[in-house]
Computed example of a mutant assay.
Amino acid sequence: MSTVLVITPTYNERDTLPGVVARIRAAVPAAHILVVDDNSPDGTGLIADRLASELDGVHVLHRERKQGLGAAYLAGFRWGLARGFDLLAEIDADGSHPPERLPALLNAAERADLVIGSRWVPGGRVVNWPRKRELLSRLANRYVRLMLRLPVADATGGFRVYRAAALEKILLGGVESRGYCFQVDLTLRAVRHGYAVAEVPITFVDRTSGTSKMSVGVLFEALRRVTVWAVVR
Rank of each mutant, 00 (worst) to 15 (best):
residue 50 R to D: 15
residue 228 V to A: 12
residue 59 H to C: 07
residue 186 L to H: 03
residue 181 C to D: 10
residue 219 L to P: 00
residue 144 V to Y: 00
residue 25 R to E: 08
residue 144 V to I: 15
residue 47 I to T: 11
residue 131 R to L: 14
residue 29 P to N: 08
residue 101 R to H: 08
residue 154 D to G: 13
residue 217 G to K: 11
residue 52 A to Q: 12
residue 164 A to S: 15
residue 69 L to G: 01
residue 228 V to N: 05
residue 32 H to Y: 05
residue 189 R to T: 08
residue 70 G to N: 03
residue 57 G to Y: 07
residue 191 V to G: 05
residue 215 S to Q: 03
residue 73 Y to S: 00
residue 54 E to K: 09
residue 189 R to K: 07
residue 63 R to G: 03
residue 175 V to M: 02
residue 77 F to C: 09
residue 106 L to S: 03
residue 86 D to C: 11
residue 135 L to C: 03
residue 75 A to P: 01
residue 20 V to C: 00
residue 19 G to Y: 04
residue 20 V to M: 06
residue 193 H to F: 08
residue 147 M to L: 10
residue 40 S to Q: 02
residue 194 G to M: 07
residue 204 F to S: 09
residue 98 P to T: 09
residue 76 G to A: 13
residue 219 L to A: 05
residue 84 G to T: 12
residue 37 D to P: 08
residue 87 L to S: 02
residue 30 A to P: 01
residue 213 K to Q: 14
residue 184 V to G: 02
residue 229 W to H: 12
residue 56 D to F: 12
residue 146 L to C: 10
residue 138 R to K: 15
residue 11 Y to T: 01
residue 60 V to C: 05
residue 66 K to Q: 07
residue 25 R to Q: 11
residue 171 L to K: 04
residue 17 L to Y: 08
residue 160 R to Q: 09
residue 222 A to Q: 06
residue 65 R to F: 10
residue 110 E to G: 15
residue 162 Y to G: 00
residue 164 A to N: 12
residue 104 A to I: 05
residue 169 K to D: 14
residue 122 P to W: 04
residue 20 V to F: 11
residue 150 L to V: 06
residue 231 V to P: 01
residue 106 L to D: 11
residue 209 S to D: 10
residue 95 G to L: 14
residue 53 S to E: 15
residue 182 F to W: 15
residue 93 A to E: 09
residue 175 V to S: 06
residue 117 G to D: 09
residue 87 L to M: 06
residue 4 V to L: 09
residue 174 G to Y: 09
residue 99 P to G: 09
residue 149 R to F: 05
residue 2 S to V: 07
residue 21 V to D: 00
residue 223 L to M: 12
residue 84 G to F: 11
residue 158 G to F: 01
residue 205 V to W: 02
residue 122 P to K: 05
residue 101 R to E: 10
residue 180 Y to A: 12
residue 130 P to G: 12
residue 83 R to W: 04
residue 94 D to H: 11
residue 137 S to F: 07
residue 205 V to F: 07
residue 102 L to S: 05
residue 4 V to P: 00
residue 214 M to Q: 12
residue 132 K to R: 08
residue 92 D to N: 13
residue 28 V to S: 05
residue 129 W to T: 02
residue 49 D to R: 14
residue 140 A to K: 00
residue 198 A to Q: 08
residue 80 G to P: 02
residue 113 D to A: 11
residue 138 R to L: 15
residue 223 L to G: 04
residue 124 G to T: 09
residue 118 S to Q: 02
residue 225 R to P: 00
residue 222 A to T: 02
residue 90 E to R: 15
residue 53 S to L: 14
residue 1 M to V: 12
residue 200 V to W: 01
residue 45 G to D: 08
residue 75 A to I: 00
residue 188 L to G: 07
residue 208 T to F: 05
